[in-house]
Design a protein around this nucleic acid. Structure first.
Length: 882
RNA sequence: GGGGAAUUAACUCAGCUGGUAGAGUAUCUCCUUGACGUGGAGGAAGCCAUGGGUUCGAGUCCCUUAUUCCCCACCA
């Protein structure tokens, strides 16, 4: 007795064990190996802020499929895992934790102790993420696991910062930036989410100094009046030309501000006069620069009004807005209030409305970096899949502005800039300076700020391989092959990796970018904490198994599009696993200890053997092609269909006559082919469903080692047997038709019918002869006889047609003649409509001239076929009516 | 304001370089046949959103319209 499997598929029984075995055998590890071609994927490092969600599961499943496929195909496949420190998000979480546990703020705790807390957090969640990935089956090279704040990454970050600074591409400046009053840090443009909101548009009068005149401005943010330093009008706007150069008096503060002319102003919009607040509006900032206006910042870091706000000091920006509107109204300066839609920026982490304000920050000068990045995609060095995301990529780069990289946070890479207290000189260098190179002073302070998280993730493809050292790994594995990520982080990450790698390594970071969509809930809603519709991958794995989860995420999904996640899909995935499981049980219980090899049986193959082997070959060809084009959903679909519809539904059923027969030889061939094809299926399916395929593989005789290191089946076009496929098709049609007739005639299973065949071609006679055992076992036929003359056709019989032959079932006592005539009429209709279609085509001159000859031939053949069928049907109907 | 996507069977979605519409789920009929009822056999179900164009031929390519959904954007 060979190995046996339990009756039901229960992934919990083996998934952990299987994964542990892979770990023990070190199969995930990749090394520089000049004898093999490398294939590299860098895992987009998950944030250490919490647990993995279904989006991660999708992202990682795609990568795991690709990496397993390539590993089996003989590549030295490296999948480098790691986690991201996620500066803001983690810091916020740790701040909350400290507050909750210790009741103190981060300042009270102090920088050093705060960092200890953050590292402890990282240890906990970093480990949890690894565990989750392992449950999903991810075959990462854990020995190479990295963290964006580990020593190697730190070194790379410093190196990049210093190089860019020395090149003049990083600078420090007092500029307008996006400020999150809740996270209390600056944000890059990419980190601001804009939202359309209904707000008010207030028209306000500013008195003109020493004159009985007013200038009317319009604003959505009255609280910024406190920071106004000018009013601007269009230079050619005649309504205001007399006011240019005059002085307006700011309400409440009585500040005297000039009226300036600037083409930025759109005379058509609002009143045509704009209040200018250089310290709180990006456009106004620009105007301010052009006209040398002072910047008056009237808000604190928490967006309350500071002492420059006069009577409004201490109010929040919203309280202040309300109060100012009220005060303006009281003084008769409020002209009107209108409703108006406008977009407000929000922090992508905490969703607080962002406050634009001027601040001393570090920036990357983007223009010179953007250009090569655009070129790399334009010239095809980097291919984005699906292609349409090119537009997103270009659009962002074409409109890029300088990148604000400093964050007022502790958790992150501290900026390697040192200020001299004596002379104010700024030193940027790789190591901590002892003395100021300018004045020799020793009182040096390092910049307090940390770098944007994305600054370090931008280096991920090479900082993880040892850069700036010229390591063998870097040379061998870089550029990486595919970057797999969601469309939501093209801006944050993909673009920045491209220009970073091009700038520092002078090569692309990856050859392909494979974009996937978002995982949504069954109603199509985004999964979110506030909706409470998030699904925990671990719970899914617990209930259905990791393979079913992976199947659900991949099946029927196409690159770049969102997918809905539902219970039904999981069930269908689990059912498929169960089907495969039981097919294996069937095979196992019919095998014997001693089995010949496939090669030894090559001469004994029956029609169905040749057929299934040819079909498997075709499936291999298609699946491999799909995988190479990143069409994972299609690839999986094909494996599924081959497994269920061909192997299980037909081939297994057909082998039963041989397996249960008492002759050794045909039985052995069936046993060998059953095993061979099952193994073929397992190898094709392994990248998608690694656990079940491994578990089953291990039970099969003659399967050596792990399926993980088995070879990917090389598809051979010449192994296809199209004629065998056609013959089998005909036999299957015969069986289906007979089953159909039986169902329609309500012939119970117990009643075996005799089949009489009028064969017109040698081939059809052969098909029926070879197919006789299957007509018996699968179509309820008792025996098959061939008719030689038309006169022998029984009168009371139901009939059906396959190419080249008519099949009759005399069921005199059972058939209802009227019903049978109806059935035949229906078939006749079908034949007629087919003939009409084909004839229409063949009557078309253009078709005959321009369509490929092969197609024309096929159509002609079809026409003949259907016409024969029609003749037979008509004859048959006549006979029955008579 | 700009860009993109979607619109295919009751539902959720596939459909690659144009050549007679597919799957899963649900539904209807039958079946405890020695792998599987997490199953088997059979059936019903679609003017592939709209109007045009290119073509011998369009779900597939081009344009129009409608609806829905994303993304981007410095009109105060």
């Amino acid at each position: 007795m060979l190995n046996q499997l339990p009756k039901n598929y229960d992934p919990k029984e083996f998934e952990k064990k299987v994964y542990q075995n892979w770990l023990d055998k070190n199969y995930f590890h990749a090394e520089v190996n000049e004898e093999k071609e490398p294939f590299t994927i860098m895992l987009p490092p998950p944030n250490i802020t919490g647990a993995l969600h279904l989006g991660h599961a999708l992202d990682q499943t795609i990568q795991d499929i690709l990496i397993r496929y390539k590993r089996m195909s003989g590549y030295e496949a490296l999948w480098m895992p790691g986690t991201d420190h996620a500066s803001i998000a983690t810091e916020v979480k740790v701040v909350e934790k400290v507050k909750k546990e210790k009741g103190i703020s981060k300042k009270e705790l102090g920088r050093e102790k705060f960092m200890d807390e953050a590292w402890a957090w990282r240890d906990t969640y970093g480990r949890r993420i690894v565990e989750q990935m392992q449950q999903l089956g991810s075959s990462c090279d854990w020995e190479r696991e990295r963290f964006t704040m580990d020593e190697g990454c730190n070194k790379a970050v410093t190196e990049v910062f210093v190089r860019l600074y020395e090149k003049g591409l990083i600078y420090r400046g007092n500029r307008i930036i996006n400020w999150c009053p809740d996270c209390k840090t600056s944000l890059s443009d990419a980190e601001v989410e804009h939202e359309e909101k209904m707000g008010n548009f207030w028209h306000v009068k500013y008195p003109i100094k020493d004159e009985d005149l007013y200038i009317e401005v319009a604003t959505t943010r009255p609280e910024t009046i406190l920071g106004d330093t000018a009013v601007a009008v269009h230079p050619e706007d005649e309504r205001y030309s007399h006011l240019i150069g005059k002085i307006a008096v700011l309400p409440f503060l009585n500040r005297e501000i000039p009226i300036v002319a600037d083409t930025y102003v759109d005379p058509e919009f609002g009143t045509g006069a704009v209040k200018i607040t250089p310290a709180h509006d990006p456009n106004d900032f620009e105007v301010g620069q052009r006209h040398n206006l002072p910047q008056i910042r009237v808000m604190n870091d928490d967006a309350t009004i500071n002492e420059l706000g006069g009577p409004y000091v201490g109010m929040t920006r919203y309280e202040c807005r309300k109060q100012i509107v009220k005060d303006l109204d009281e003084r008769g300066l409020l002209v009107s209030t209108k409703e108006r839609n406008h977009s407000v920026g929000h922090c992508y982490r905490c969703h607080t409305a962002v406050e634009p304000l001027t601040s001393e920050q570090w920036f990357v000068h983007m223009e010179p970096l953007a250009e090569p990045a655009i070129k790399a995609v334009k010239d095809g060095s980097i291919k984005i899949v699906p292609e349409r995301f090119d537009k997103t990529y270009f659009h962002w780069l074409d409109n890029i502005r300088d990148w604000c990289i400093s964050r007022q946070l502790w958790w992150g890479h501290r900026i390697p800039a040192y200020y001299c207290d004596d002379c104010g000189h700024i030193t940027v260098q790789r190591t901590v300076p002892e003395i100021c190179p300018d004045c020799g002073g020793t009182k040096l302070r390092q910049d307090e700020d940390a770098l944007d998280t994305w600054f370090s993730s931008a280096l991920w493809t090479f900082s993880t391989l040892g850069w700036p050292e010229e390591t063998p790994e870097l040379k061998y594995f870089h550029p990486t092959d595919v970057l797999v990520t969601g469309y939501d982080i093209i801006f944050f990450w993909v673009i920045r990796m491209v220009f970073s790698s091009l700038e520092h390594l002078e090569e692309i970071p990856f050859k392909h970018v494979l974009i996937h969509g978002l995982v949504r809930d069954a109603q199509g809603r985004k999964m979110s904490k506030s909706l409470g519709n998030g699904v925990d991958p671990l719970q899914v794995i617990d209930e259905f198994g990791a393979d079913a989860l992976r199947y659900t995420l991949i099946h029927g999904n196409s690159p770049g599009s969102d997918l809905r996640f539902s219970q039904e899909k999981l069930e269908s995935a689990r059912n498929f696993a169960n089907k495969l499981w039981n097919a294996t049980r069937f095979v196992l219980m019919n095998l014997e200890e001693e089995m010949p090899t496939m090669e030894e049986m090559a001469g004994n193959l029956a029609l169905e053997d040749e057929w299934i082997l040819s079909r498997m070959e075709r499936t291999r060809l298609e699946v491999t092609a799909n995988l190479d084009k990143f069409e994972l959903g299609l690839a999986l679909q094909k494996v599924y269909e081959f497994t269920w519809n061909e192997y299980c539904d037909w081939y297994i059923e057909m082998t039963k006559t041989r397996l249960y027969g008492d002759q050794v030889e045909p039985r052995q061939t069936a046993q060998v082919v059953l095993t061979e094809v099952l193994k073929g299926i397992l190898r094709l399916l392994h990248p998608f469903m690694p656990f079940i395929t491994e578990e089953i593989w291990q039970t099969l005789p003659s399967a050596e080692g792990s399926i993980m290191v088995a070879s990917w089946p090389q598809a051979r076009e010449k192994a296809l047997k199209p004629d065998m496929e056609t013959r089998m098709e005909h036999l299957m049609t015969a069986i289906r038709n007979i089953r159909n007739i039986r169902a329609e005639m309500n012939v119970p299973h117990s009643v075996k019918a005799a089949l009489q065949v009028m064969a017109h071609t040698e081939e059809s006679r052969e098909v029926i002869t070879m197919g006789t055992p299957y007509l018996k076992s699968l179509a309820g036929i008792a025996e098959v006889t061939f008719l030689e003359k038309f006169e022998e056709v029984p009168e009371l019989a139901v009939s059906t047609i396959i190419p080249g032959a008519e099949l009759y079932i005399p069921l005199a006592e059972l058939i209802d003649i009227e019903k049978e005539i109806q059935r035949l009429e229906k078939e006749k209709e079908k034949a007629l409509s087919e003939i009409k279609r084909v004839e229409g085509k063949l009557a078309n001159e253009g078709f005959l001239k321009k369509a490929p000859t092969k197609l024309v031939e096929e159509e002609k053949a079809k026409k003949d076929e259907f016409q024969d069928m029609l003749v037979t049907l008509e004859k048959r109907i006549e006979e029955l009516k008579a």
